[in-house]
Each structure stands twice: as C-alpha cells, then as structure tokens.
Amino acid sequence: MRFKNTDGKPAFSDILGKLRMRLGIKRSDYRVNPGLYALNSPGAGSPVLVSANYKLSFDVLRAAASDLDAWILVLDTKGINVWCAAGKGTFGTEELIKRVKKSGLSKYLSHKTLILPQLGASGVAAHKVKAKTGFTVKFGPVEAYDLRKYLENGQKCDEAMRTIRFPLAERLVLTPVEMVLSWPLLLGSLSLSVLCALISGGLPVFLSLLSLSVLAILTGTLLVPALLPYIPGSSFAWKGWITGLISSVIYLLLAGISSAVFIAGALFLFPAISAFLALNFTGSTTFTSPSGVKKEMLYAIPFCVISAAAGLVFLFYFAFRGFSL
C-alpha cells in the first residue's frame, strides 16, 4: 500500500466545492479516497492526523495544517463529516483498526500515536484501538484550527480546545442548507397563495400569503439560528414559534391588514411553520440532546400540525367568503 501526496493549498475547485456543500447541492457526493496521505513531506517522527473522507472535512484539516509535515489517515466514513460519522459509527473503532492495518502506516513511523479530532470520540474507543493495533489514540482539539497550538503544546489540549462552541458564524453557515431543505414547505405555501388568490382576492392576497410564507421560513431557518442565544426559553420549537409570531404580527401591521379571519389564519399557520423549522435546527446544533429533542417533539409536533391546520381552515374560509384584507 502506498500513500498519496497532498498540500494545504486549496484549488479553485475546492472553493467551488465548499460553496456547493454550503448550499446543500449534491452534498452526499463530495468525497476523497480513504487511505494514507502525506501532507507536505512528513518523516518517521511526524504526527498522524486521522480524518473523515468528506472532502470538506479533509480540506479543513489540510488548510489548518498547511505549514506542517504530517500524515493524514482518511477513514471511509461514506462521505460524512467526523462528528456525524462518529455518531453513526462509520468514523469508528473497527474502521480505524482496519485502516491502520491496511495502510501499512506503522512502517513509515518511529512512533505509535494517532491524533483524532475530539468529536470523533463518540465513535472510537481508544482502548480498543490500542489493544488491536498497538497505537495510542490521542483526542486532539475540537477545531482543526487549534491543531498547531495543540502540537506545540506537546500534544495537549487546554479546556478551551476541548470545548465545543456554536458561534454566530458557525450557526449562519448552516442556514442555507436549512433553507434549501425547506423547499417542500415553500412549495406548499406557494400553492396555498395561488389557491386563495384564485378563489377570491387576487394579487393582494397572493402577495400577502407569499410574503408571510417566505418570512416564516426565513424566521425558522435564518433568524432563529442567528439569534439563538438571545431568544428567551430553551425549547427550539418555542423559540421558533415566538419569533415567528413576532415577525408575522409585524408584517400584518405594516401591511395594514384588518380582516380578523385572515389575521387569525395567518397567526395560526405561520408561527407554526417557524416553530417546526426551528425544531429541525436541533439536528445542526452542537448542544441539543436526543432525549431533549424527543421530549420537545412530543408536544411540539402535534401543536404545529393542529395549529397549521386551524390556520388553513381560517384562510380558506377567508377566501371562500370573499372577504377583503
């Protein structure tokens, strides 16, 4: 088995690829081949960094270690990032043991240490890897950009490097994918707007409903993630609902809509959409527990469904009776 050479410089296609991933276009198909890579020109004493075969993960690591000589061992995680793959078990003990043996890694090295990203720990049992391969697994920093500091520090993490955070930039970078994934809701809203406009009301009703829909979707997928720490409460559905309510009320006031039936319909439907989308954002966060999500879903999903159904009843009643806005 041989290794492939690489460096830390991103090619133009890597930048395009990154953009494509952030927009969620064919996201399941962005991979590098698993195996051993030589970053710059590593020697027998160089560190071994273990990564996933999601190309975005590999590129982040390459870029962070661009001025280092290191070995990169890429596991076959089916094109999934380290954190999610560790949860699914593909960034896992078995795969790491297999890959260490298959790559013939030890013949290039004078040491027996593997450095894994900390977030790989939920898939990899360090003691089992040690028993099967003789390699000591060290869990490095959560973020690749701390790697240099970690290595200079004698392969030791401080508390900050071990702690996962979720700053604004990281929350926002995830929102385009959330928006793209919400297309069925947009399609549904569009049909509702067209339908209500055709039944009666015409263009003003169409525009009002479409604006409210887009606003509700943007609230759930962009505004809530952006303002996450500042919206009171801890339940995501609640955060989505209250923010959705405020944004809908602001729109209704600004648009000067006075039909009580339309207002009732809008306030039952649109905050429920924002609540549902905000609840979905739990899957992208770095601090929500499955037990918590399950607890929340138990009341939030029925609430959203019933509230949205009530909203639709009001809006269709509004349209069929031919009320004006």
Binding site: C84, G87, K88, S122, L181, L279, N280, T282, G283, T285, T288, S289, P290, S291, G292, V293, K294, E296, M297, I301
Partner: peptide, 12 residues
C-alpha cells in the same frame, strides 16, 4: 448514556 444525534428530522 442513551446516545444519538438529536436530529428531529431523522426522528420524524
């Protein structure tokens, strides 16, 4: 610990 990814979408 009962572990999991905590993804509402996946759970639904």
């Amino acid at each position: 610990v009962k572990n999991g990814t905590g993804c509402a979408y996946g759970m639904i």
